[in-house]
């Protein structure tokens, strides 16, 4: 599973309220879209499907709302590579098969607009613009299995359909 895209950079403590703001709750997607990560001045207008996010510490901290990674996935953000994540955001991302990777030092490795390639299974992050490479924290095989199965509900569907059910 390789993901390649242009980098948008975010700082520390980007909370889930910024990815799924209360003020666009239950609004049409066209409106929601414009509010996602409005904390970055250029992101809402400049983002193209397939672009990726590089962030600092504690990305996705705060509320447990799964709409946060779900909105990024629906926006077609390729992946998020961050110094660290809010733990529920990380769990939610894995549960819905949205690729995320903890990677110490990644913010120093990328400038905004550079080209990133993530080899998810190997936890390898390449800067295609500079030709450098950095390794993130590998996810346990069980978690990689959830993501490659397409998320927890897919996994549950397979298990429930299997012999004797889940």
């Amino acid at each position: 599973m390789n993901i390649r895209g242009r980098v948008w950079k975010f700082g520390d403590d980007i909370n889930t309220d910024y990815m799924a703001p209360g003020f666009v709750k239950n609004q049409p997607w066209e409106l929601v879209k414009k509010a996602i990560l409005h904390i970055h001045p250029g992101f809402t207008s400049g983002f193209k499907p397939g672009d990726v996010i590089v962030a600092g510490e504690n990305f996705g901290c705060g509320s447990s709302r799964e709409a946060a990674p779900a909105n990024l996935k629906r926006l077609e953000v390729g992946c998020v590579v961050a110094e660290s994540f809010g733990r529920i955001f990380l769990r939610n991302s894995i549960a819905i098969a949205f690729p995320v990777l903890i990677c110490k030092g990644v913010t120093a490795e990328f400038e905004e607009g550079e080209e990133l390639e993530l080899d998810f299974a190997q936890s390898l992050v390449r800067n295609k613009t500079r030709g450098t490479e950095i390794r993130g924290t590998p996810l346990a095989p069980e978690l990689v299995r959830i993501v490659t199965a397409g998320g927890m509900m897919q996994l549950l569907k397979q298990q429930a359909a299997g012999p004797g059910g889940a």
Binding site: E66, I88, N92, M153
Partner: peptide, 17 residues
């Protein structure tokens, strides 16, 4: 805390990673 997909999963299986 967990999110809604994990809530669905754990309500059905009683287990979580």
């Amino acid at each position: 805390g967990i999110g809604l997909t994990e809530l669905a999963y754990v309500m059905y299986t009683g287990k979580l990673w």
